[in-house]
Design a protein around this nucleic acid. Sequence first.
RNA 1: GGGCCCGUGGCAUAGACUGGUUAUUGCGCCGCUCUGAUAAGGCGGAUGUCCGGAGUUCAAAUCUCCGCGGGCCCA
Length: 1122
Amino acid sequence: MYMFKPVPNKVDFIVQEEEVLKFWEDTQAFETLKKLRVEGPTWSFLDGPITANNPMGVHHGWGRTYKDLYQRFKAMQGHRTRYQNGFDCQGLWVEVNVERDMGFKGKHDIEEFGLENFILMCKQRVLKFAARQAEQSIRLGYWMNWDNQETLKLLHDELGKDPMKVLTVEGVDGPVTGTVEHLVGRLGLPELGGSYFTFSEENNYTIWTILKSCHDRGWVYKGRDVIPWCGRCGTGISQHEIVTEGYRELTHPSITLRFPLVDRPGESLLVWTTTPWTLSSNVAAAVGADLTYVKVRQNEEVLYLSRGTLHMLKGDYEVEEEILGMDMEGWTYNGPFDELPAQKDSGVAGNHIVITWDEVGEEDGTGIVHVAPGCGAEDFQLSKEHGLAVIAPLTDNGLFLDGFDWLSGMNVNVVRKPIFDNLKKKGLTYSVKDYTHRYPVCWRCQEELVFRLVDEWFISMGNKLDIPYPEVTENQKKNNLRYQIMEVVINETTWHPSFGKERELDWLRNMDDWMISKKRYWGLALPIWECSECGHFDVIGSKEELQERAVAGWDVFEGHSPHRPFIDAVEIKCSKCDQHMKRVPDVGTPWLDAGIVAMSTMRYNSDREYWKKWFPADLISESFPGQFRNWFYSLLAMSTILERKAPFKEVFTYATLVAEDGRPMHKSWGNMVEFDEAAGKMGVDVMRWLYCDHKPEKDLYFGYHSADDVRRQFLIPLWNVYSFFVTYANMDGWTPKDDMQTALSQLDKWILSRLNEVIQKVTEYLESYEPNLATAVVDSFIDHLSNWYLRRSRRRFWAETGDSDKVDVDKNAAYDTLYKVLVTLSRLLAPFVPFVSEVMHQNLTRSVDSEAPESVHHCDWPTSGPKSVDGKLNSEMELVLRLVSIGHASRNKANVKLRQPLSEIAFAVGLDKEREIVSRYSDVLRNELNVKNVRLLDVVAEVINYELKPLPKQLGQKYGARFPAIRKAILDLDAREASTRLQAGESVQVTVDGDTLEILPEEVEVKVEAKEGFSTAAEGSYVAALTTELTPELEFEGLARDFVRRVQDLRKSSELKIDDAIDIQYSASTRVSEAVESNEKYITDETLATSLKKAKKPVGKFKATYTFGDEKLDLAITPSEK
RNA sequence: GGGCCCGUGGCAUAGACUGGUUAUUGCGCCGCUCUGAUAAGGCGGAUGUCCGGAGUUCAAAUCUCCGCGGGCCCA
């Protein structure tokens, strides 16, 4: 019976991961962890909500890996954490998908369908994808308080049938009963547990608290402004949304047209625009006051445009006069659509005016800008400055309003052509030309945006003071949210990478007032009640306050979540005029929903003690594109409004995940990798390591090639070491003991010292939020472990037990060491690769010690004592590894394969202490390089050339500007003499500018060249000189090794067990036979042969023929009878 | 127009804060080689104006400035 479960070196990691998931579930490993840490110091992680609107992608996997990494790491360090995932539930993105599913074309279809059912479907969609994302996250190994997916599915189904049905579901401390709608609204709250959902009643009502608090300070206001608008979605698109995805490179026909001047018959202004629909609402034309304009005669007419845009004209023309823009101010002209009632009613028809504006330029157009204050933000601003009329042409669906004659009722996106035709008929068109520009589109439905004059609700950010932050006074901050937020950012937050802080501050310095309303359906019901009589508005801070003030409709609303349409029924009495106030129909931006979670999920309103314990969060982490203006901003804003405190201490951010070809992932481009597919093909340990290994601030190129690299360079080497250990430990019946062997070899001590170094560095790098540096440390350690420690220790594990006490002691030391390394690694790697580390823990630790933690994730984080890292030993081994490397290079140059033993290698090294290392490690070097003797190169007798290399780092720092002269003086020395002295550890003198200076051995590198007869390789001052002459004995030994190699090959291909004994028969050329006969003991030892017989025709169970060089070998092996 | 980040072989990257004369690693390519832990590994080779220019310095991929190009964010 084996102590450890046998570990095949080939394993299906994916199947294994699924087994681990099952193990965690069966043993309730996560629940146990929480119980174990219940008394621990708190470490508060606040999850940024994922939009529960689609299955999760591999980019979510990246972020979730970090989140899980840190929670696991902190838990192993003994911390108690909250483990609450968040789902973002409300907002346009959910609406758009439900609309699409239902085949709706716009708001009209929704209203016809009915708000009540539409809202229910939005809720259902969220529940459906929350369950899906939870399932995927669990596959990733992400330990969180996931909701019971069956419960979510049940609520989803019942919500569709009857939201008022009373149900009982399992809660944290027992069953919870309520209507389906009520239960859905209480998801994530203490009695139900699980993820927080931003559509929860708690979340919505806590936002009410905030908005009231803002209102009390006079920060909430209704603003009339021209904002980007999506006619299809029927909503304004805020500054927060329009950037990034919000622009498209589009080509539109642009038009240049005439504005005939009133007092100058036959003369016109020439004006250019890309948005002809806005001409319907033209009020003025703007010129640059200091720009030069020209009066141009062309054919029978006179045109005005700026001098720098004359190239706009087609055909011949004659410049008659030049004037400044300021001289045109006040001219009047006839607008292109003066016949429309809207133009007439506003009084501008026949009386359009020329104004000056310093933003007018000559890059595009004619230097004369058409101004339509109802159709553009800057135009609207100008109207306020110049007292211009404002004509707003569009409905919220993007249709022309009444008053626009034939245009009325037409969609703004289809009027371009008819307007062109109309203008042409009127003789106003000068030219039409395609024009390509970046044009804003709706980030959800891709419809081209227009600009529309609307009333929206804002939170005032406070004035932008044109002074640096440190000069802002306390008094100025007092009623200024902008500077209050900046204050908490500067004083209380740390950003990784550090430039994040500057970006956030930049956003805060520049952002305009926060537009919080949306003219939509599914979202936070803005708690603003407005009086239709006197226009007064009030902000309600809680459900209780609303009930108290309700004068109508409470009965309709009661029992429902605070969403449309039910909340709209509630009316309150106007505190100014006693009339009834109705809620404004707008819903809130989803960033309010996400921003409140530092309060709502930490029970700010319901359990202040709990909140104090967990607020502020120790860490938040999200991908940075977008979040500076979105989640980071809204979290900061809300926490500042309520408490004037930062909601988090550390922010860990990372860049964007793209496909392996460096482009964004797109299904149609064929470079998309779905999460489920990736998990099934590469496995999530590999995926997680790939993520952790990446420098967070760089875009990550994700794909199967890089995943393969991870598997080859990290996972398989790790697994092979583990597999090797278990295989041999089982063969030897080795069991772990409490005490480590005292007789550790140099290699053992070294790998343990390295291990401790790794523990320290991984801990440090995780704590400084540089996980990629932590993984790099591990990568290099695993390389050392696999390719050096184990390769050089293999024979120690092979050694026959009982041969001698010395062998047994050494062997035990090797087992002790490797066991310790692997057990420690399983813990150190647990937060990164939770699956493979669990497998190792179960087999290495749990199987031999039933008292050990049931899961690796219950273990304590490894620590290392201050003296556990032997820096001297580590650097010694580093030198040995370098010598090995150039030793291999010297063999390679001589073209002698490693299997062929050679008589001798001699090394030249720089310093005294290094020479000593060569002799101390000569055994290792000898074995690795397959030579009979390792020695130092005789620097007097065997060196033909010396070169001195003054080391700039040492000498430069010491002598500064004198370095070049000193360098020259050193190079002028007699190299042989100086080298001999330096290598003997003595200093040499040089004279520079009359000063005699002592040059120390460590300040000069001595490069030597070995004389003829060696095969040499060098790196820096290190030289390997190999003696390549072969004696017959050496040749025979080489052949014997060739022979062994073939036997092993045959053993392996015959699928014999490692410890199966065999009988060998062979036939071979004379030379090989002689070699075999003279190395019989070596061969039988290596191949576990009980007999080794030469035969004319070898007979055995397994046979093979080999040729190597000029030699031929027939082999037959048979497993020996036991 | 403003802020932040970045520019290193064919591709992808480390190094930059703290300057040091042979620029790291991986993928890919070529040759050799090792292996009863290894789906691997090792050694060597080809592939570099470290975006360009100027400056600081004994010394610049690294620091400063200017330019060019890209990304993110804002206007």
